[in-house]
Nucleic acid binder design. Structure first.
Lengths: 345, 345
DNA sequence: TTGTACGCGTTATCAA
DNA sequence: TTGATAACGCGTACAA
């Protein structure tokens, strides 16, 4: 257990004692005046405030934290910031945090157990008041470590419904249904699904929305339509998935997420397959880039920022001992230009 | 000046005093044993360490900070996290921070002066050891407030070369030259530029790289080729810019950044203009999405993560009183499929 | 209405 | 080699 650090001292600023000396009162009085305590004379309060301003006093929240035993800090653990989905989660979460006087410690795990351990340890040492686990992969080792910290924690986009920690998720089954129903409406009957096995639980949900909707439409599901490419990233998944889909003779593809869909789009471009004339494609997430690609991608929108906001509200709720329940937000279909009637060649 | 907060206490964990009591030594000894101070008997050191482990002791870095007057925390102020460029800056910066035992406070200003003020105030109260200002727009009010804090600060992607604060930038002039030279090489002679006036300084640099390169090629520059659309965001800039470029009879466009380029690409799609057959396009940045669009975008790559890493190394350097100089990193041309010989219609 | 004294958890100084 | 004590900056019982 290493605790040592470089020992250089850095800051050296005005404290309430300095103000007290100048004002000719005790530091207690200054402390009270600053917090607008009604017991202090308006006179001295005024004087203290003016002095504080003139002397450039800035409260030391480290000292406040030590005393109050709370830091007004939330740790957010993400696998990577450089992910369009995570990015919006954070934007939403940070908005609420800032409003409520909280700060966010941002840490990335990069799927590296050592880093994960390190981050959890850091969160403990720094006494964060709460933790948001963003899109944790199932089987994260750090979860166990985090259980140990008795700190409010919420799961964002984990799909794991866990009795010990509340979670914010989207209706993945319903969202997938939206996508497939849309394709059915355009006349498609042979619809493929390209999944992502590293997001196991979410993948299962979206897949089940897909199968359910096909069944309800009375369509005999061909197992070769369901593809879970053996790949490490979404880019490869799209590329591999497209090949297999084509082999399965599908007229439309519903993809686990936009990144896969966009990769499919890209592969189509390279193979000279025109979308949506020859193949229709629907994604999931509605990341910013979905509307930029050619053709603009029809997709299922997740309210990403709203999810981030909700997760933050939930941790803050837990911190204030409020009752907090799992949240499941709705998706919405965004029609753009990657879907057309099936090619009748 | 409001300082009041909710007053609920949260944590309550093992301290060195608790360990001391159990070990039958003073808390000083425990403190030393934990830091592997050579003055303590290997015997007691061992015993203390074992106890610390058993009792689940986690050092309180708040208390450490109060004492040491440093927090091992860096404040990063960004206008928005939901920006593909910023995202990579952060990924890079966070990597270094984590390696060196620092944490990042992430705060967004969203171009709102009130928020900016709030963030700066927060950074001061929380006694961050340093600040990274990410892609600050010129004229940020907060700069003045930040000057007041006597805390190491570095500017990332600001293009402002400022004597008081070191900056990390990319060679914008050289990068633009790369792009234009590439278009010249393919035979283009009428090349447009779509700029972004809200990034004033960077815009000027890229524009100057553009003009310089054209001049060196002995091309008479037509002022109508240079377009600075009156718009608030890059999407609109692309749309408006394309119209004006077309009117100017240009065969290729160099765009201030990828977002504009992609918007141009998108507008072309809608107008039935095929890229690169009828119009060549080059962007700047090489954001992830640049390789996903159709056609994949030829662009000038900024080493975004490297810039983030460099900025972080620089603040940490400043904190440790090292000599730190401005850094200018090189760009690199990434050839993809949005450039072809000029259309000879 | 104001001030004194103590505690928050840790490190540093000085004495034993 | 170890320990008592003070200090970091702030908040708060309790006393005046």
């Amino acid at each position: 257990m290493c605790i040592g650090y470089s020992t250089t001292k850095l800051q050296s600023v005005i404290t309430i004692k300095d103000i007290a000396k100048v004002a000719g009162v005790s530091h207690t009085t200054v402390s009270r005046a600053l917090r607008a305590d009604s017991r202090i004379t308006p006179d001295t309060t005024e004087r203290v405030l003016r002095l504080a301003d003139e002397m450039g006093y800035v409260p030391n929240s480290i000292a406040q934290s030590l005393n109050a035993k709370r830091t007004y800090t939330i740790g957010m653990l993400v696998t990577s910031v450089a992910d369009p989905v995570v990015m919006d989660f954070m934007e939403g979460a940070e908005g609420i945090a800032q409003e409520r006087g909280y700060c966010i410690f941002l840490s990335t795990s990069r799927n590296d157990p050592a880093r994960e351990f390190n981050v959890v340890d850091t969160f403990q040492r720094r006494r964060v008041d709460g933790v948001i686990l963003v899109a944790p992969r199932t089987g994260d080792k750090c979860r166990l470590a985090l259980e140990r910290i008795q700190v409010p924690m919420v799961l964002l986009d984990s799909e794991e419904v866990n009795d010990t920690h509340p979670a914010v998720n989207v209706d993945n089954v319903g969202g997938a249904s939206l996508a497939v129903a849309h394709l059915l409406q355009w006349g498609h009957r042979r619809i493929g699904y390209i999944g992502a096995t590293d997001r196991r639980l979410t993948n299962v949900k979206r897949l089940s929305g897909y199968t359910k909707t096909l069944e309800q439409a009375g369509i005999q599901l061909d197992p070769t339509w369901i593809i879970n490419p053996e790949a490490d990233d979404d880019l490869q998944r799209g590329r591999l998935g497209l090949g297999q889909c084509l082999a399965a003779g599908v007229t439309a593809i519903f993809c686990y997420n936009d990144q896969i869909a966009i990769s499919v789009l890209n592969s189509c471009y390279h193979k000279g397959i025109s979308v949506p004339q020859q193949l229709s494609i629907v994604g999931f997430d509605d990341i910013r880039l979905a509307s930029y690609v050619n053709p603009p991608l029809t997709t299922v929108r997740q309210p990403l920022q709203e999810m981030g906001r909700t997760a933050m509200k939930m941790v803050l709720g837990l911190i204030d001992k409020a009752q907090v329940k799992n949240e499941m937000l709705d998706c919405e279909l965004v029609e753009r230009a990657s879907v057309a009637p099936p090619c009748t060649v």
